[in-house]
Protein backbone atom coordinates (compact mmCIF):
# COMPACT_ATOMS: atom_id res chain seq x y z
CA UNK A 1 0.00 0.00 0.00
CA UNK A 2 1.10 3.57 -0.71
CA UNK A 3 2.70 4.75 2.55
CA UNK A 4 1.31 8.28 2.11
CA UNK A 5 -2.21 6.90 2.04
CA UNK A 6 -1.41 4.51 4.87
CA UNK A 7 -0.16 7.44 6.97
CA UNK A 8 -3.47 9.29 6.63
CA UNK A 9 -5.46 6.12 7.40
CA UNK A 10 -3.35 5.44 10.52
CA UNK A 11 -3.60 9.06 11.65
CA UNK A 12 -7.37 9.10 11.12
CA UNK A 13 -7.69 5.84 13.04
CA UNK A 14 -5.60 7.09 15.94
CA UNK A 15 -7.53 10.37 16.19
CA UNK A 16 -10.93 8.68 16.11
CA UNK A 17 -9.77 6.23 18.79
CA UNK A 18 -8.24 8.88 21.03
CA UNK A 19 -11.39 10.98 21.34
CA UNK A 20 -13.77 8.26 22.66
CA UNK A 21 -11.05 6.72 24.89
CA UNK A 22 -10.15 10.02 26.58
CA UNK A 23 -13.85 11.01 26.62
CA UNK A 24 -14.75 7.75 28.34
CA UNK A 25 -12.03 8.39 30.91
CA UNK A 26 -13.73 11.70 31.69
CA UNK A 27 -10.97 13.90 30.31
CA UNK A 28 -12.21 17.49 30.04
CA UNK A 29 -8.95 19.31 29.30
CA UNK A 30 -8.71 20.23 25.63
CA UNK A 31 -4.92 20.48 25.83
CA UNK A 32 -4.71 16.77 26.77
CA UNK A 33 -6.49 15.86 23.53
CA UNK A 34 -4.36 18.21 21.41
CA UNK A 35 -1.14 16.91 23.03
CA UNK A 36 -2.20 13.35 22.21
CA UNK A 37 -2.97 14.30 18.59
CA UNK A 38 0.46 15.94 18.33
CA UNK A 39 2.16 12.89 19.76
CA UNK A 40 0.27 10.56 17.41
CA UNK A 41 1.09 12.74 14.41
CA UNK A 42 4.81 12.68 15.15
CA UNK A 43 4.86 8.94 15.90
CA UNK A 44 3.06 8.15 12.63
CA UNK A 45 5.37 10.55 10.75
CA UNK A 46 8.50 8.99 12.25
CA UNK A 47 7.38 5.46 11.40
CA UNK A 48 5.83 5.95 7.97
CA UNK A 49 7.73 9.04 6.77
CA UNK A 50 5.06 10.31 4.36
CA UNK A 51 5.99 12.62 1.48
CA UNK A 52 4.77 16.22 1.61
CA UNK A 53 3.91 18.62 -1.23
CA UNK A 54 5.45 21.53 0.68
CA UNK A 55 7.24 21.85 4.02
CA UNK A 56 5.34 20.06 6.76
CA UNK A 57 3.72 23.20 8.21
CA UNK A 58 1.18 21.07 10.08
CA UNK A 59 3.99 19.49 12.11
CA UNK A 60 5.37 22.95 12.86
CA UNK A 61 1.97 24.27 13.96
CA UNK A 62 1.34 21.21 16.17
CA UNK A 63 4.79 21.53 17.69
CA UNK A 64 4.27 25.21 18.51
CA UNK A 65 0.87 24.46 20.09
CA UNK A 66 2.41 21.57 22.05
CA UNK A 67 5.22 23.78 23.39
CA UNK A 68 2.66 26.45 24.28
CA UNK A 69 0.57 23.89 26.22
CA UNK A 70 3.67 22.58 28.02
CA UNK A 71 4.80 26.16 28.75
CA UNK A 72 1.43 27.07 30.26
CA UNK A 73 1.45 23.92 32.43
CA UNK A 74 5.00 24.60 33.65
CA UNK A 75 4.11 28.23 34.38
CA UNK A 76 1.04 27.09 36.34
CA UNK A 77 3.18 24.77 38.49
CA UNK A 78 5.85 27.40 39.09
CA UNK A 79 3.40 30.17 39.93
CA UNK A 80 1.21 28.17 42.33
Amino acid sequence: MNKNLLFNIVLGGMITLTVPILGALGETRLDAYVSMFTLEYFIATAILRPRRRIKDILALILLIIFFFIVGVRVAEILLT
Partner: peptide, 25 residues
Protein backbone atom coordinates in the same frame (compact mmCIF):
# COMPACT_ATOMS: atom_id res chain seq x y z
CA UNK B 1 -18.45 19.80 24.87
CA UNK B 2 -14.67 19.15 25.06
CA UNK B 3 -14.60 15.67 23.41
CA UNK B 4 -16.59 17.00 20.43
CA UNK B 5 -14.29 20.04 20.22
CA UNK B 6 -11.30 17.69 20.27
CA UNK B 7 -12.89 15.60 17.52
CA UNK B 8 -13.26 18.76 15.44
CA UNK B 9 -9.58 19.63 15.97
CA UNK B 10 -8.63 16.06 15.09
CA UNK B 11 -10.62 16.29 11.85
CA UNK B 12 -8.85 19.57 11.03
CA UNK B 13 -5.46 17.88 11.53
CA UNK B 14 -6.51 14.93 9.38
CA UNK B 15 -7.88 17.16 6.59
CA UNK B 16 -4.71 19.30 6.60
CA UNK B 17 -2.58 16.16 6.50
CA UNK B 18 -4.46 14.84 3.45
CA UNK B 19 -4.13 18.23 1.71
CA UNK B 20 -0.36 18.22 2.36
CA UNK B 21 0.09 14.70 0.97
CA UNK B 22 1.05 14.41 -2.71
CA UNK B 23 -1.37 12.26 -4.70
CA UNK B 24 1.03 11.15 -7.40
CA UNK B 25 4.48 10.25 -6.22
Amino acid sequence: NIPLTALGIGLMILASSILLTPLES
